[in-house]
Write a protein that binds this DNA or RNA. Structure first.
Length: 763
RNA sequence: GGGUUCGUAGCUCAGUUGGUUAGAGCGCCACAGUGACAUUGUGGAGGUCAGAGGUUCAACUCCUCUCGGACCCACCA
C-alpha cells in the first residue's frame, strides 16, 4: 500500500543510487528491451555538459541547464539511443582566481605575499572542495550523467590536448605574440579580452586646454604629459594653414615642449575642436594612429595606475588624484580654455571588480580570427560562419543565430594570455641568449634548439580559461580515451546538442565551433540550445549581495528535485529568462503528489493488490513472453492483465485518444526543443483529463461488472504510459511509483518510450 | 551609433508555420468535509491580445509607424 503523500526525501537518494548502480548512465548499457546480443547498433546521442566553474557551488541557474539536458538525455535513452552525457568541471582561471583572492583578502592574506606554487596549491584545494559540492548538487537534481567519464579542465590529459592545439596553431601562424595595446585591470594586474570588460555611462568634466595655437579637448588630463603630437583631419579648413610634420614650440604642463603636427583621417572633425593630442601607450585609437604613422610610443602610466617619471612633479601619484592637481596647474598657467562639466561618456571597467580599465601595452599571445588557415582555407571566423550557413551547426531560436552572426562578423583577434597564476600555463620558453621562442608541449625541452644554451625562461602567463574550455567537446572525449584506452571520439563526435546559457554564446559557443573545425574538421555539435537566466520573482538577477539567491539544495530539501525541475521549465519559452517564484515550485510539488495519488488510487482498487505487469492498449494479443528473435517482449506489449469482452465506454475512448494525442504532442515538442510545451501538455493531461475526468468516471464504471476489466486495464495503461512520458521531467516520483507498481528491479529509466498507437485501435 | 527582443487576465507567463467561443500557474469569489489526493474537487469573475494604420476571406500571429520596457555589440580624444 502506498503512503498517503509522496515524500521526496524518502525516495530520492535511494533511487539515484539504484540508477547509478544499474550502469544505465553509461552509454554502453543497453535497455532490457533492446536487441541484446551482437554489436551495439544503437545510434549515439551525446551531450557534453557545460562544466560548472570550480569557484563556487552551483546555483539554481545551473540547475536549469542540467534539467534541460537531463530531460533530453532521459528521453533519448528511453527511445533506445546510446546516450552519453559527459560531466566535468572548469577551473575557470580568472573567475576562480578573483573569487579565491577575495577569500584570501578576508583572511588577511594576499597572493602577492605568496609564492606562485603556494597560491596554486591553496587554490587547488579550495577548488576541489567546491567541485565536490557541485557534483553532489548535480546528483541531487537527478542528472543521469556518466560519472565514470567525469573530467576536469586541469586533468593532464586535457592539458595535453590544449597544448597540442596551441602548438598546431602556432605552427600554422594563427597564434602570435604581439606587443599591442590591451585592456589592463590595475587591480587584478592582468589583461582582459574585449568580452571581459563592461561599460558604464558617466558624466565627467571634459577639459579644453590651450595647446600652442590650438585648443584640445580631453577627459583625461593625466595622460597628456607625453603628448608631443597634435593631430587634425587633413581636410579640415580651420587648420588648413598647418602642414604635416610642422613643428610648433609651446608651453605645456611641465614647461616648454615641441609638438609635431599630424594630419590623420581618424580625427572626427565634429568632435570637440577637431584637434587632439594623442597618448598612444594608453589609448587604443591613439595607438592605432601611432603604429600606422610610426610615431613614438611613450608610457605615462604604470601597471598599478600611477604616473611615471615623465610626469615630473606628479610622478608616483595615482591618476585620479593627479587629475585635479594637473588641471589646477594648467589653470594657474592660463592654459585652460574652458571646462564642459556635463560631458557624458562611457567608461570601460573590469567586469569583475569595476576598476577602470587602463589600456596598456603588454606582450600578449593572440589567436588570429580572420587570417586564412594554411592552404588557403577559411579563417577560424569564417569556418564558424560557414557552419551556420551550411546548417552543420544550428542555433535553436533564430534570434540567437542573428546575434551570433553579427558578433562573428565584427570579431577581432583574441588575446589568450592572462597575467594570472590559476590556470593552464602557456607552454612556451624563451631563450635568454638568442631569443628563440620554444613551444614545449610536454615540458621536456631543457635547452635551446637554436643555440643549445640552457638559459630558458618559461612564459609567466596562463591561458584565458576559454582557450581550454573552448576545446571541451573533443578534449573531453580525447582525454577519456587517453585515460581509458577507448575510442569514443570516433563514436560520439560530433555531439548532438550543446545546451547552455545564452550569456556565454560568444565566450564559449563561438570558440568551440572555431576550435572544433580547426582540430577535427567537424562541428562540435549539431544543435545549440540556449536557455535563459533564472531570475527572482521580481525579475531581478540573482546575486549574493541582493540576498535573493535561491539555493537549489534548499529547494530540493523543501519541495523535492522533481518540483524544482518542473518549475524551471514549466511555462517558459526557450531562451527566455525565467522568473522563479517559490509558489511555482510549491505548485509543482503538488503536481508530483497528484501523480503519486493517482497511482495510489489505481493500485489500491479492489483488494488493494497491485497488478503486477503493465497492461496493453488496446491489443489483446497473446504473448509467449519472447519475441520472434527469442528476446523478452517489451513490457508495454504484454497482454492485458484483464481480458474479456468488455466494451469501451465514451470515457474510455476519450481518455485513450487523448493519451494518444499527448504522446504525439510531447514527442513532437521534445523534438523541437519546446520543453515547456511538453511539460504543460503533460500537466494538463495527467491532472485535468486523466485525474479529474477519467478517474472520476472510472469510479462508476468499476461498479459495473461488464466494464470492470477494461476499466482497470485502461487505468493501468494510461498510468503506466503517463509515468513514462513524465519520467524525463520528473524522474524521481515516476521511478518511485514504478517501483511500487512493478518492483525495484525494473527501472523506469530504461523503459521504452511510448509511441503513438494507431487511432483505429480505439474501438 | 549598430543590432536583438518584449508589451496577452490582478501577478508571472504560454500561445509551434495566420484559421472556429485566446490558455496555464498563483491570486480572487461561491460551493463541496475528507475510502486516491485538502498538496483536493466543482463552478465562477476577470483580457478593446500596448496604440494606430496596412496586407488577407481571416491577424495575438505578417508588414509599417507611434508609445513604453529589457538586453547585446561597438565606442571618439
Amino acid at each position: 500500500m502506498m503512503e498517503k503523500a509522496y515524500d521526496p526525501k524518502k525516495y530520492e537518494a535511494d533511487i539515484y543510487r539504484r540508477w547509478e548502480a544499474s550502469g544505465f548512465f553509461a552509454p554502453e548499457a543497453r535497455p532490457p528491451w533492446a536487441d541484446n546480443p551482437g554489436p551495439d547498433t544503437r545510434e549515439p546521442y551525446t551531450i557534453i555538459m557545460p562544466p560548472p566553474n570550480a569557484n563556487a557551488p552551483s546555483h539554481v541557474g545551473h540547475a536549469l541547464g542540467y534539467t534541460i539536458q537531463d530531460i533530453l538525455i532521459r528521453w533519448q535513452r528511453m527511445r533506445g539511443r546510446r546516450t552519453l552525457w559527459l560531466p566535468g568541471t572548469d577551473h575557470a582561471g580568472f573567475e576562480t582566481q578573483v573569487v579565491f583572492e577575495k577569500k584570501l583578502e578576508k583572511e588577511g592574506l594576499s597572493r602577492f605575499k605568496m609564492t606562485r606554487e603556494e597560491f596554486y596549491q591553496a587554490c587547488w584545494d579550495y577548488v576541489q572542495t567546491n567541485k565536490h559540492i557541485s557534483e553532489e548538487a548535480i546528483r541531487r537534481l537527478g542528472a543521469s550523467c556518466d560519472w565514470s567519464r567525469n573530467i576536469f579542465t586541469l586533468d593532464p590529459e586535457i592539458i595535453k590536448v590544449v597544448y597540442q592545439t596551441f602548438k598546431q596553431m602556432y605552427d600554422d601562424g594563427l597564434i602570435y605574440r604581439g606587443n599591442r595595446i590591451s585592456h589592463w585591470c590595475p587591480k587584478h594586474q592582468t589583461t582582459l579580452s574585449d568580452l571581459e570588460t563592461k561599460y558604464e555611462e558617466r558624466a565627467e568634466p571634459f577639459y579644453y586646454f590651450k595647446y600652442g595655437p590650438f585648443v584640445i579637448g580631453t577627459s583625461r588630463p593625466e595622460t597628456k604629459f607625453g603628448d608631443k603630437y597634435v593631430v587634425m583631419h587633413p581636410d579640415d579648413p580651420r587648420y588648413a594653414k598647418y602642414h604635416e610634420g610642422q613643428q610648433i614650440n609651446l608651453e605645456w604642463i611641465n614647461g616648454p615642449i615641441t609638438a609635431t603636427i599630424i594630419k590623420d583621417q581618424a580625427v572626427d572633425r565634429e568632435f570637440g575642436t577637431g584637434v587632439m593630442t594623442i597618448t598612444p601607450a594608453h589609448d587604443a585609437v591613439d595607438f592605432a594612429i601611432a603604429e600606422r604613422r610610426g610615431l613614438d610610443i611613450e608610457p605615462v602610466i604604470d601597471k598599478r595606475g600611477k604616473l611615471l617619471p615623465i610626469a615630473g612633479e606628479f610622478a608616483g601619484r595615482k591618476i585620479l588624484e593627479a587629475r585635479s592637481k594637473i588641471v589646477e596647474k594648467l589653470q594657474a598657467k592660463g592654459l585652460v580654455d574652458h571646462i564642459d562639466k556635463k560631458y557624458q561618456h562611457n567608461v570601460q571597467m573590469c567586469y569583475k571588480c569595476s576598476t577602470l580599465i587602463e589600456p596598456q601595452i603588454v606582450p600578449q599571445w593572440y589567436v588570429a580570427m580572420t587570417k586564412p588557415l594554411p592552404g588557403g582555407r577559411p579563417s577560424l571566423r569564417d569556418l564558424a560562419l560557414q557552419a551556420l550557413d551550411k546548417k552543420e551547426v544550428e542555433i535553436v531560436t533564430e534570434r540567437f543565430a542573428k546575434i551570433f552572426r553579427h558578433w562573428m562578423e565584427n570579431i577581432r583577434d583574441w588575446p589568450i594570455s592572462r597575467q594570472i597564476w590559476w590556470g593552464i600555463p602557456i607552454p612556451v620558453k624563451y631563450c635568454g641568449d638568442c631569443g628563440e621562442i620554444i613551444i614545449d608541449v610536454i615540458g621536456s625541452v631543457k635547452k635551446c634548439p637554436q643555440c643549445s644554451r640552457e638559459q630558458l625562461t618559461p612564459d609567466p602567463d596562463t591561458f584565458d580559461t576559454w582557450f581550454s574550455s573552448g576545446q571541451w567537446p573533443y578534449a573531453t572525449l580525447l582525454a577519456n580515451d587517453a585515460k581509458q584506452g577507448t575510442q569514443t571520439l570516433a563514436q560520439y563526435y560530433p555531439t548532438q546538442v550543446m545546451e547552455t546559457a545564452w550569456d556565454i554564446l560568444f565566450f564559449w559557443v563561438a570558440r568551440m565551433i572555431m576550435f572544433s573545425y580547426y582540430r577535427t574538421g567537424k562541428p562540435p555539435f549539431q544543435k545549440v540550445f540556449l536557455h535563459g537566466l533564472v531570475r527572482d520573482k521580481d525579475r531581478q538577477k540573482m546575486s549574493k549581495s541582493k540576498g535573493n539567491v535561491i539555493d537549489p539544495l534548499g529547494v530540493i530539501d523543501l519541495y523535492g528535485a522533481d518540483a524544482l525541475r518542473f518549475a524551471l521549465i514549466f511555462s517558459t519559452a526557450a531562451g527566455n529568462d525565467i522568473p522563479l517564484a517559490e509558489d511555482k515550485i510549491k505548485g509543482m510539488k503538488h503536481f508530483a503528489n497528484k501523480v503519486w495519488n493517482i497511482a495510489r488510487y489505481i493500485t489500491g482498487i479492489g483488494d488493494g493488490h497491485v497488478i503486477p505487469a503493465p497492461v496493453s492498449f488496446p491489443r489483446k494479443r497473446e504473448s509467449t513472453g519472447v519475441n520472434s528473435s527469442g528476446n523478452p517482449v517489451p513490457a508495454s506489449d504484454w497482454i492485458p492483465a484483464f481480458g474479456g469482452d468488455d466494451k469501451w465506454t465514451d470515457a474510455d475512448k476519450l481518455i485513450l485518444s487523448q493519451l494518444n494525442q499527448t504522446i504525439t504532442d510531447v514527442t513532437d515538442n521534445l523534438e523541437n526543443f519546446r520543453l515547456h510545451e511538453a511539460a504543460q501538455t503533460l500537466y494538463d493531461f495527467i491532472w485535468h483529463e486523466f485525474a479529474d475526468k477519467y478517474l472520476e468516471a472510472s469510479k462508476e464504471q468499476l461498479k459495473n461488472e461488464a466494464l470492470k476489466n477494461s476499466t482497470l486495464n485502461n487505468l493501468y495503461f494510461v498510468l503506466a504510459t503517463s509515468l513514462k512520458l513524465l519520467h524525463p521531467f520528473m524522474p524521481f516520483v515516476t521511478e518511485a511509483i514504478w517501483g511500487e507498481m512493478y518492483g525495484k528491479e525494473r527501472l523506469l529509466i530504461v523503459e521504452k518510450w511510448s509511441s503513438s498507437t494507431d487511432e483505429s485501435e480505439v474501438v
